[in-house]
Amino acid sequence: MNARPAPRFPEWPQYDDERTGLIRALEQGQWWRMGGQEVESFEREFAEFHGSPHALAVTNGTHALELALQCLGVGPGTEVVVPAFTFISSSQAAQRIGAVAVPVDVDPDTYNIDVAAVAAAITPRTRAIMPVHMAGLVADMDALGKLSADTGVPILQDAAHAQGARWQGKRVGELGSVAAFSFQNGKLMTAGEGGAVLFPESDLYEAAFLRHSCGRPRTDRRYMHQVAGTNMRLNEFSASVLRAQLRRLPAQTALRDKRWALLSRLLGAVDGVVPQGSDVRADQNTHYMAMFRVPGISEEDRNALVDRLVDAGLPAFAAFRAIYRTDAFWETGAPDESVEQIAERCPHTEAISSDCVWLHHRVLLADEPDLELTAEIVADAVAAV
C-alpha cells in the first residue's frame, strides 16, 4: 500500500450535555429508578421519539431481548426464529431462557433475515420471529408482518442497531410489534451499557415491568413478588446520559445518512467491493455500521484485509461469524441439526460471514475528504489481497 496520512475520524462515544445530566441525577438524592426521575423521563422521551406508547429501560440489550421474549411466551419447549447472520445475543437471548434458537438465512444484499426462510422454519413450537435490523437497515416488515398475521407468531424486532430508523415513514415503535434496543458503548446512542424495550400494548409493558424488577409491583412495601423475575433495572446515572445522547441522535443520523451516500458510491467503484444494499421502503437507515463485501474472498484473506485497514488507520472489523459456527451456540438451546446441515440451508450467511467487513459508524461522522481517503485505503488493501 502507498504511504498516505490516516483519515481523521471523530472519537466515540461523544459527550457534552451528559455532564449536566449526571450532576442532575447525583443531586436529586435518589440514584435508583424507583425513587428518581431520570429513568422515567428517559423512557417517556425514548417512547415518544419512536412513536410507541411504552418504553422500559433495562440493563443492556441482551436483557432487553430476553425480557421481551419472556413476555411473548417464549421458554422451554418453544422455538425462536433468528437470522443466522447476527451478533450472538440474538440467539443467546432465546437460549438463555430455555428456548431453541432456529437460525435461518439472510438476504445477500441487505444482510437482513430472509422472509421465505422464516416461513419455512415455522413449526407449532415457534413462539417468536426475531428480525435484526442489520446496521440500521430495517428488515422487510411488510412481509414479516403478513407472515406474523397469517401464522399468529409475534415479531420481536432486534433494533439494537436501529435507534431512530423508519420503515415507509413509520418509526420502529409504530410497526405494531415489540422492539428491543441496545445502548452498549459502540451503539448509536450509549451509556456504556443499557437497553430498552418498546411495547405496543399496556399488558405486555406491565408484565415486563414486573419481571424486570424481581416480580415486585411499583408500590409494594411488603415484598409481595407476583411473578418470577430478575433485576434488570437501569440506574439513574445511565438514564441521564441516554437523555443527552437521544437529543443528539437526529443530527448524527442525518449526517451519517448523507455521508453513507458518498462512501457507498466510492466503495462501489472499487473493483471487487460491494457495499451493503438498501431498500427504498426503509426510508431512514441509521447506518450503525458501514458494511461492504468482497465476494469470493476467503475468510483468512478477509481477516488479513481487516488487519491492513486497521494498520492504515481505519476502525475496521470482520463481520459477525455465523451464529451456528460458534461453540456458544451449541451449549444449550440448539436445534437438532449439525453445523453443516444448517450451513447448507444458509448459503448467504456462509458467504457474508467470510467476505464481509464493517467500519465503525464514527467514520460516517467524518468530513468528505476523509471518506475519499477511506475509499482509497480500502481500494489499496483489497488490491493487495
Rank of each mutant, 00 (worst) to 15 (best):
N235I: 06
G277A: 01
G296W: 15
F209H: 13
Q276T: 08
T230G: 15
Y223W: 09
Q284P: 04
Q276A: 12
A191S: 15
S213A: 07
A196C: 04
D203Q: 08
D271Y: 12
S238H: 14
G272H: 10
I297M: 01
H212I: 02
P295D: 13
R211N: 07
A196M: 14
D220A: 07
Q284R: 15
S278F: 00
R293H: 09
N285I: 07
L242Y: 14
G313P: 07
T230I: 13
G195L: 06
L263D: 13
D327F: 00
I297N: 02
L305C: 05
A208M: 13
S202W: 05
P275L: 04
F320G: 04
F292Y: 13
D279C: 01
T332G: 02
Y223V: 12
R259G: 01
L246Y: 14
A318R: 05
A251L: 03
A191P: 03
A322M: 00
A254G: 14
T230W: 08
L204E: 09
A328Y: 00
E193N: 06
Q284F: 01
V274L: 13
L249Q: 00
S202I: 00
P275R: 06
A334D: 08
P275G: 05
L309P: 06
A239M: 14
R247D: 07
A304G: 07
G229I: 08
A244C: 13
V306L: 01
E206S: 09
A207I: 06
T253F: 06
A312H: 02
R222S: 06
G215L: 15
D203C: 08
T332R: 14
F237C: 13
L249G: 02
R247I: 07
M224T: 11
G195D: 03
L246H: 12
L314Y: 11
L246I: 10
S278I: 01
N303V: 03
W330N: 10
R308F: 01
P200A: 14
D220E: 14
L263F: 04
V241K: 15
D203T: 10
Y288S: 07
E193I: 09
Y288K: 00
A312M: 03
Q226E: 08
C214M: 11
F320C: 08
V310L: 02
P217R: 08
D327A: 10
E236I: 15
D279R: 04
P250Q: 09
S213P: 08
Q252K: 07
Q284W: 01
F329K: 12
D203S: 11
E193T: 14
L266H: 03
P315C: 04
E206A: 08
A244V: 11
T230L: 10
Y324E: 07
S213N: 00
L267I: 05
S238N: 15
D271A: 15
I323E: 02
T253E: 15
D203P: 05
R321K: 04
R293S: 12
N231P: 14
L309I: 09
Y324M: 06
W260Y: 00
S202N: 01
F317G: 02
R308L: 04
G195E: 06
T253R: 03
A228T: 08
L255Y: 05
R259D: 02
G194Y: 12
P217V: 05
D301E: 13
L204S: 07
R259C: 11
V197M: 10
R211F: 00
A282H: 05
Y223E: 09
G313Q: 05
A254Q: 11
H287C: 11
P250F: 11
V227F: 10
